[in-house]
Amino acid sequence: MNTTRFAAAPAYFPPGHEGMRCLRLQGFEAGPSASLWLGVSVILPGGHTGLDASPMEKHYVVLEGEVTISTGAQAVHLSQYDSVCLAPGEARKVENPGNRPAMLLLAMPYPP
């Protein structure tokens, strides 16, 4: 069993993430995991990612606040406990359009 306390979760710094604090909860530098890793992003008002794709499927769950996720072709506004799954290779932009911070959980498999 690997336990990561939120207060001790290591930060990571993905490119193209502005106005965000990204923390690793499981996997990579947060400890062993066989198939996926978990992260939490705290997104300040106006914070966002670029419109980028990755070769792995991504799952997002809004824990607090509200976010908008856009694929370039469509956009969805998500509130607390709403979730979205993005297919491998599907571009996405995540942004916090509101005036309150948002917290977003990310689950993603390891790269091949």
Rank of each mutant, 00 (worst) to 15 (best):
L36T: 05
G98M: 09
P45G: 08
V61P: 06
H48M: 15
C85Y: 03
P32F: 13
P97G: 03
A11N: 04
V42E: 15
G47V: 01
P88F: 08
G65T: 12
H59W: 07
L51M: 11
M103H: 14
G65L: 08
L86F: 11
R100F: 02
G16W: 05
V42W: 00
V76Y: 07
E57F: 03
A87R: 15
H59V: 15
P14G: 03
A102V: 10
E18T: 10
G50D: 15
H77Y: 06
A73H: 08
F28Q: 10
I69R: 02
Q80R: 15
F13E: 07
P32D: 06
F28T: 04
K58N: 06
A11S: 01
L104Q: 11
V84R: 12
M103G: 10
M20Y: 00
G72Q: 10
H77P: 03
A102Q: 10
A53W: 03
A30G: 00
P15A: 06
L86E: 02
L105A: 07
E90R: 07
L44W: 01
L38V: 05
G39N: 04
P88E: 14
R24E: 05
L25M: 14
A87V: 02
E18M: 03
T71P: 05
A73G: 04
P55M: 10
D82I: 04
T68N: 07
L86N: 05
G19T: 11
S54D: 12
